[in-house]
Design a protein around this nucleic acid. Sequence first.
DNA 1: AATTTAAATAGATAATTATCTATGGTGCTG
DNA 2: CAGCACCATAGATAATTATCTATTTAAATT
Lengths: 315, 315
Amino acid sequence: MDLRHLSFRLLQVYIQVVRTGSISAAARNLHLTQPTVSLQMKKLTETVGEPLLEPRHGKLATTAVGNELYRAAGDVMGRFEDFGHTLAEARQGQWGHVKLGVVTTAKTIIPRILGGFYHYRPKVDVTLNIGNRARVLERFSNQEDDLYLFSHPPTGTHVRATAIIRNPLQLIAPKGHWAAQRQALDFSELKHERFLMREPGSATRMAFDTWLSARGLELNNTQQIESNEVIRLSVAEGLGLAVLSAHTLEEGREKLVQLPVQGFPLESNWYLVSRRDRRLSQAAQALVHYMATDLAKCIQPGWVADDLGKLLRPD
Amino acid sequence: MDLRHLSFRLLQVYIQVVRTGSISAAARNLHLTQPTVSLQMKKLTETVGEPLLEPRHGKLATTAVGNELYRAAGDVMGRFEDFGHTLAEARQGQWGHVKLGVVTTAKTIIPRILGGFYHYRPKVDVTLNIGNRARVLERFSNQEDDLYLFSHPPTGTHVRATAIIRNPLQLIAPKGHWAAQRQALDFSELKHERFLMREPGSATRMAFDTWLSARGLELNNTQQIESNEVIRLSVAEGLGLAVLSAHTLEEGREKLVQLPVQGFPLESNWYLVSRRDRRLSQAAQALVHYMATDLAKCIQPGWVADDLGKLLRPD
DNA sequence: AATTTAAATAGATAATTATCTATGGTGCTG
DNA sequence: CAGCACCATAGATAATTATCTATTTAAATT
């Protein structure tokens, strides 16, 4: 038997014929004409190579082989019905995978977002890829993930970026630092202090550098450290000052103070980034939707960006 | 999703693509060209309405939906492979149903034949319909069974009948009957005896009547009894003489004698009958084949008809 | 025997499929 | 950067399918 030319439709028709025991009745049920069904049965019989139906007591009944085929056909249709249901769920984003590329800085808020999302769509599987900006950028250009979280989104026409979470960059000093006594400070007063900074290319560093150069300022005592945590601890130990995302200061802030320098905290945001040239899976769309509507439930309300609705508006 | 236009072939191709992770490789395996497969994947994707494949690490990998489809496709193909095997068995007549219509007289040998056949083809299911000649004839004309066993097959061009078992009709008398003393008898000497006979239309009766009228003989003392067993017992009790199939005399012959009348036993046969206008199922062919080759194993060899080979020769 | 119902066959057609060759784009690899 | 391997698209065609209407044949019922 050559299965190739068997189609699901044919099996569907066959099942109807067997169930009704009549070609005409099957035709009526399927909104076909009687000859159509008759012909299809003929073709099916030829494909199988054995008689499938025989008249018995005025109805068509299956032969032994026909009955086996009926069972096989039923199993097969049932299996594909299941698939259809699964598919429908996937269509609604009930179900599926999302791959998320995240820059290291953002890793502190991610767990709360995903925690909330898990309750919203328990069957959606999220794979998280955390890396420094360079690695995530590379993943972005290789299209390895569905969605990305950046502080400074890459540029390009195929990039779709929406600010979702505010990310104030604070200027911090160790508790007891001289500048902490002051009511107000101008940044120029700090230019001889030592600053602990992330590597160039990191979003925090970029924002700070931009701010500095816009004001024609230059620092002459800096040290590069590649981890926000280490920077935070180092500042606490009195090794210098730093500009850090407020999110990394959630804990262990007892030994730190925020300096009242004009212009700080620097306002920046985290952006949810996707590629315009790639269709988002329904599961990914569900995540976007969740962020647009329920982010405030899992993030301190003050940190949520102003216009989350933008996420849902096509552009 | 509309399953109708899904064909098994398409799923087969899809499975290859998923397994090899490459359209070109799948095409080679299936002896198709690469664009063919490419196009088919496109069509399949359209049918499902969701992306199924995505490039990953230089190969094509399934999406979540694609993977579900792959599993469904695998299940379905597996199911139909099973069916294929079942079908192959049925093709060899390993398997299936045979319906057999048998006249009452023959019921004594049927169990032995079917017993042997059961060992030959244990999975073939035989349904036996036993009736008097008239009922079996009716079944024959309604095509209710696959094969029939008659003493006098019906006539007609669409009837295919082959003698398979000899059926000598013996003239019997009660032990101690006057005629039993004689070395040889002429039938005319018995014409005043009472004869117990089956109803007109039964094969035994027909054979006897034919024999009588060929010789211009007529009986003037007959009684009709519709059962061979009752006739046999009645003869034993001295109620008269009878002509009976040797097969019905297997047991209880102590009180009977066979009269040495010229021309007896009447030679007749049982015929295996089928309809030329109806294809025999493989299972039925297996039964025919069994009779042609192994009948001697379950029937006393002297009773097997001469040319069983005729069963296997198409005509 | 007449009527009704169901199945098969014939004949037709528009749509679809399966398949090809040829070509263009993309992304690795030496 | 030239070459290769891979996928996608275009364009073409012969075969097949799905479907119809109309008719014939067969079976069942009055």
